[in-house]
Nucleic acid binder design. Structure first.
Lengths: 200, 200
DNA sequence: TATGGATGCAAGTAATCACTTGCACTCATC
DNA sequence: GATGAGTGCAAGTGATTACTTGCATCCATA
């Protein structure tokens, strides 16, 4: 909306995201990125100065893309908690799988580029996290969640469950179940773990 | 026990593991590894032929080290389930934090070196996973865990919770709680999620 | 029609990479 | 004391890297 959408620049950024995801931040060469973008290598340097500048542009683009995607969806969580959890988990897991390669390289370089991984977490997952927490609090207000549990931590635990599971399931060695089964068990256990104790 | 412990070879392997963890598989140069091992660079090639051979040696060494470490500990899980879960979680989380850097680079390169990440998962985490599942099944036999839940998937979900949480907590941007709080909530929610329903 | 900005192309830079070669040294074992 | 395996040292290989320079070309706008 704000920018006039420089076609070349955007094409380079999206190509760079693909190549970074495929080859890693170190393994991605400026040549390969330029080729993927169908652009001369020198154009890349004229637009972004150097590889680091390109990476920074890719990161802010990734955050913005995530923002415009995660809008919509999700009403109030006043009804069936498990059903709402399940829908949330399915959507989140699907998008994690879709971005698997990029997420992996970002995790791998997390210690070597702390600013970027921090930005990704703070700017991209923060809004999703906060709405998730708000939904859990609404559900608690409706009596669907027991007291005495920090819902911020619980929300992080739930997303970590999906995230870690995705890393395992996409690693190529399955242990005899489908991703859908995994998500279902996560939702089941988490929902039961949050449910109010029905008077001992 | 089996090998006569070639000092030079082992020193190179351990140095390589540190440099791989610090700089990534791509970023780690044979020069840096040789320097870290206080060994001439050419010795590295004479011992392992090439960088890939060195990486393979590092992986089998990592698996063996993990094996000899994860022995001992843990009796039967017939008593307090939550207490046993807590001890398991504390130990696992601590070792995940200790190996954070190496795990991150392995996750990052998981798609580019599938054999190695597969080996790491199959050979290193498998035994821990199987004993964890056996413990959960023993607890179920003792009436501490409800039926209708695949304990293999549940075990994976629990470790994924700790694993994903470790990645988040060590990423440098905390959300106002300590790792111990996180682990405690994980154990709390998971234990409650597995608990038998007390007659509605 | 003229100007200026964005792009392509060809060529080249200095640095770094994984990996090799040849030679000298040590040291345990025969 | 001779042998041979393991190591260090110096030097060098060709390939690849990020990044630069100079010049031609397009094309929208003034």
């Amino acid at each position: 909306m704000s920018e006039p959408a420089n076609t070349t620049r955007e094409r380079i950024i999206e190509a760079a995201m693909r190549v970074f995801a495929r080859d890693g931040l170190q393994g991605a060469t400026t040549r390969a990125i330029a080729q993927e973008a169908e652009v001369n290598e020198v154009t890349l340097f004229r637009q972004f100065q150097n590889k680091e500048g390109l990476l920074a542009a890719v990161m802010t683009h990734a955050v913005q893309a995530n923002h415009s995607e995660s809008m919509g969806d999700e009403a109030e969580w006043t009804g069936n908690l498990k059903k709402n959890l399940r829908r949330f988990a399915d959507n989140l897991y699907a998008s994690l799988v879709r971005d698997e390669a990029f997420l992996r390289t970002m995790i791998g370089e997390g210690k070597r580029h702390p600013e970027h991984s921090k930005k990704l977490i703070m700017d991209a997952v923060k809004p999703v996290r906060e709405r998730f927490i708000a939904n859990l609090e609404a559900a608690r207000k409706a009596g669907l969640v027991r007291k005495g549990i920090d819902l911020g931590i619980a929300a992080d635990a739930f997303t970590a469950m999906l995230f870690g599971g995705m890393l395992r399931n996409t690693a190529g060695c399955s242990w005899g179940y489908e991703p859908a089964d995994y998500v279902a068990i996560c939702v089941d256990v988490f929902a039961a773990g949050l449910a109010p104790v029905p008077r001992a």
